[in-house]
């Protein structure tokens, strides 16, 4: 028993200087990941950077358009939740980052993004740009072997990274989080910072 005391004290001491209780329902990742920064292109083949989304709450998700189930399901869910925001939806951007630039040409990206409504921006880039972005947000992706039609599967992270209006990484959503939690947290991120009162 005695042997447990020291590590326990260390744990308590170190945990004490960690995060205080989060106001959010999703997993709080404040201070864990770097602010939003990316160098990609959109469906019009225009270069896009993180600064383009200043003032917006950004939901970033990695996938590929030839993914028939998980990716569209996730995007439909995000788009559905954002639609519930009403007028405030204009201050939210859903970034779909395709890690499969070989098949996801700008034209494909454009049509794909449009199918999910005005708040979805489909982006991609060179393997170098995508690799740098994935490394920055600590996600992994990989390509399966091609079949006789040249089609292949892409494995990708299933997390949604949420950034506040100042581009800071704040929350992490997964498939197991409810729509209600997602909506409530986006609303909280959109709310003006509370003004200090006397």
């Amino acid at each position: 028993m005695k042997r447990l005391v020291w590590p326990l004290l260390l744990v308590l001491a170190l945990a004490g200087c960690g995060d205080s209780a989060s106001l959010y329902r999703l997993r709080d990742i404040s201070a864990l990941l770097p602010p939003l920064a990316l160098r990609l292109h959109d469906g019009d083949n225009r270069p896009r950077s993180g600064a383009d989304f200043a003032g917006q709450v950004v939901l970033m998700y990695f996938g590929y358009t030839h993914c028939p189930d998980i990716c569209p399901t996730t995007l439909a869910r995000l788009a559905g939740v954002v639609r519930q925001l009403g007028a405030a939806a204009a201050r939210v951007s859903i970034l779909f980052v395709s890690v499969d630039p070989a098949r996801d040409t700008p034209a494909v990206l454009r049509a794909y993004g449009e199918a999910f409504g005005p708040r979805v921006v489909a982006l991609s880039g060179s393997q170098r740009q995508l690799g740098a972005l994935a490394k920055r947000y600590r996600v992994s992706y990989g390509f399966g072997p091609a079949d006789s039609d040249g089609q292949y599967e892409v494995s990708h992270s299933s997390a949604v990274f949420i950034f506040d209006t100042r581009g800071r990484a704040r929350l992490l959503a997964t498939a197991s989080d409810s729509d209600a939690d997602l909506l409530a947290d986006i609303q909280r991120l959109l709310a003006p910072a509370p003004v200090a009162t006397r």
Partner: peptide, 11 residues
């Protein structure tokens, strides 16, 4: 069936 644009595979 969930409709996607172009000739993307569907679910």
């Amino acid at each position: 069936i969930r409709l996607l644009p172009g000739d993307l595979p569907l679910a």
